[in-house]
Design a protein around this nucleic acid. Structure first.
Lengths: 348, 348
DNA sequence: CTGAAAGCGCTTACAG
DNA sequence: CTGAAAGCGCTTACAG
């Protein structure tokens, strides 16, 4: 075991002051002379003092931690492009501010509700991220009841809690516009899980874009956000009497499965069917033809969400009447990346 | 805000006992009569009491949390099959025992060392997982210095800390045996990052298996554990004068990239080159031909690692001389899953 | 500007 | 078996 932890008393003794002064000095609180502050800093440095989180938390009534509950089936999580990047972005921000991330991985919604509640009951976290939102998401009521600061990720407009969004509509509209310009009139959709808001958002954006061209949105095939789902959707597509000549898939993984399956069956991509995905995963660049996609910024989203949540946490405990934290933040819109799966004439 | 938190004093008052008794009763400590215990339990339930983690931690000198620092480049993490499953397995175990997971996502080794140190300094965690080990991994010295309980994942034999392993050798040997039986004599390897122990382990197992057949291990191509790396390796393979007729890839992703690239170039899989990966990701089942692979059990590994680490944490603070915690645990060996990318005659 | 004291919510010897 | 008290390491009014 390492040597006994150095406490605030050790620093106070060494600097020849009281622990109150040490606390004030190290926390940048006003009311400490510059000289004293410097002396205390020096002593703290010499001793390698690091304030115990437990002590701070218990007296300051804060955990200095944020919670994130992932709800995903294990086999889906395995290939999920969102969470890794998101977690990285969160870390970047909260780490610098002395916070840590408490992560839970759950399977179903019920379980994750229990976990959010426990995180709050145990005062393990000061706030939580709400991703993979559903319409009428029960977590909203829960965090409200618990008085737990929370920010939503890619929520619908009108979402009752602060949230961070990346616009999906403009890129999807641009995609449909391009497909129409290329001569497509029957454009289908390979959908994700209809319970998830972001799945519905993508679908609805596609429908709107189609209607804007006076086109009937083509058939919707189940894609389940997975490669296997894309393969299944391809089978469904092939069975269609009036096959759409283009499909917009709710994510890249299902698009990849779709593309692979139709190619195996002898169809040409994009000749027989143009395909676009959503997410912008690296893999999409290397398949043949490269997968057109809507590139999103989970890392950016995470950075903004973390910043917002931290402000919320600080604010809700702040001493002054805070001028007000921006309730909602937008990161730049997702953008369309045109690649070979849509058109052989690829734009730069 | 929710109502004031109910504390141990409330429970004590309601049950008409002292807080010591409440603490003892609720922690299943001996020295409380059954009747009193029951009365206290009742009171606690009625009040919805949940012991504050902060209070427990500060007095009990334990964080009731475990730390995990992932070090992966963001674009790699995006498609990493290991962490999602691993985290899920960890949760399963620690959650049931009242522990939470503090996660850090770092890019380089230097950074992750800093974070391990901070987790320990702040007493945020009681122990840590060490994954993605390197030979002579500096984290070993660090946790030793810090006196921080730790368990290694898939460490080499002789690793100085307790660890959990899944045997990789038998499955790789079986793979090479099968390839040899199928008539292959030139079998190459698409390697991962040579700094990582598990990358070296897979390579060395392949080399050994080759030598056991008196065959010279074929060329080693860089695969970087990524799809793109597999594509590059395929290019390198094609440029070879004496192309191996089979390749064992360090992971599935690079195998997928390799397979796709050689197919694009007109080669037949497995006719011109048999391909096998490692990991057992779902995606491998759906590509064409399905990818032969060595199926691993990250979730199992995680469960055992978490159990071991918790025992270590409990043990190191236990009152009695613990009889001794098993220092090393093996989960069942990884197994070969033969699929079409190796042979058209697939075993069940 | 500085310090003595109370308190955050528990656990753990120590008495009784 | 049960309780009073100290202590974990801080922060925060409150005096001075």
């Amino acid at each position: 075991m390492a040597a006994r932890k150095v406490t605030i008393f050790d620093v106070a003794a060494k600097a020849g002051v009281s622990i109150s002064s040490v606390s004030a000095a190290l926390n940048e609180n006003p009311g400490v002379s510059a000289a004293t502050r410097e002396r205390i800093r020096q002593a703290a440095d010499d001793l390698g003092f690091r304030a115990s989180l437990l002590g701070r938390s218990l007296s300051g009534r804060r955990a200095y931690a944020l919670g994130f509950v992932i709800q995903r089936a294990p086999d889906v999580l395995e290939m999920d492009p969102f969470f890794g990047a998101f977690l990285g972005g969160v870390e970047e921000v909260i780490d610098a501010r002395g916070y840590a991330l408490v992560l839970h991985v759950g399977t179903d919604l019920e379980e994750s509700l229990t976990r959010y509640r426990r995180l709050a009951d145990e005062s393990r976290v000061d706030g939580v991220f709400l991703a993979d939102l559903r319409r009428e998401d029960p977590r909203v009521a829960l965090v409200t009841e618990l008085g737990l600061p929370a920010v939503g990720i890619n929520a619908d407009p009108g979402f009752p809690l602060p949230s961070v969004r990346q616009d999906h509509e403009s890129a999807i509209r641009e995609l449909v516009d391009l497909l129409v310009k290329l001569g497509h009139t029957r454009i289908g959709h390979v959908a994700g899980w209809p319970v998830l808001v972001h799945s519905l958002q993508r679908r609805e954006a596609w429908e709107q874009a189609m209607r804007a061209h006076d086109l009937e949105p083509g058939p919707v095939l189940e894609g389940g956000f997975s490669y296997a789902g894309g393969v299944d959707a391809a089978a469904a597509w092939m069975a269609l009497k009036d096959r759409p000549t283009a499909v917009f898939c709710a994510n890249d993984l299902s698009a990849l499965g779709f593309a692979s399956a139709v190619q195996q069956a002898g169809f040409d991509v994009p000749g027989d069917v143009a395909i676009a995905g959503y997410d912008g995963i690296e893999l999409g660049r290397y398949v043949n033809p490269p997968l057109a996609t809507v590139v999103t910024s989970p890392r950016q989203l995470a950075r903004q969400a973390a910043t917002l949540l931290l402000d919320l946490v600080d604010g809700s405990l702040g001493r002054d009447g805070d001028p007000g934290i921006p309730r909602d933040v937008d990161v730049g819109p997702a953008h369309l990346e045109v690649r070979g799966s849509i058109s052989t004439i690829t734009r730069s």
